[in-house]
């Protein structure tokens, strides 16, 4: 459960870093196309894995989906807040 949630956060962080603006804010530098693609793939794959893990854990598929979506919403907020904090600190 915890691993799955952490993977989700990681996935969203990767996806956000695959966007020029946020990459710039965090790493200070231009984002190479190749790295962008890698980050994107990494993000989506770990998102899928986190979903798979949650389903494997919950006996009921429907509850797992609700769980996953709820965590996803909160993780989006978390990542956004982290990025905001990061760009303020700069």
């Amino acid at each position: 459960m915890l691993i799955s949630i952490f993977l989700q956060t990681l996935a969203l962080a990767c996806l956000s870093l695959a966007m020029d603006k946020h990459y710039n804010a965090v790493v200070h530098g231009a984002l190479a196309t190749k790295r962008k693609v890698v980050l994107r793939i990494l993000g989506w794959v770990s998102l899928l894995i986190s979903f798979g893990l949650l389903i494997a854990q919950q006996p009921l598929l429907a509850i797992a989906v609700v769980d996953w979506l709820a965590w996803l919403s909160c993780n989006i907020l978390l990542v956004a807040l982290l990025l905001c904090w990061k760009s303020v600190k700069r």
Binding site: S16, K21, V79, L81, L83
Partner: peptide, 21 residues
């Protein structure tokens, strides 16, 4: 601009907050 929250100005921050939430 997914995951973006600008907090420079109150109204902007509120609008961003509104959109993000």
């Amino acid at each position: 601009d997914f995951f973006t929250l600008r907090i420079s100005k109150l109204q902007k921050a509120l609008t961003d907050f509104h959109g993000l939430i």
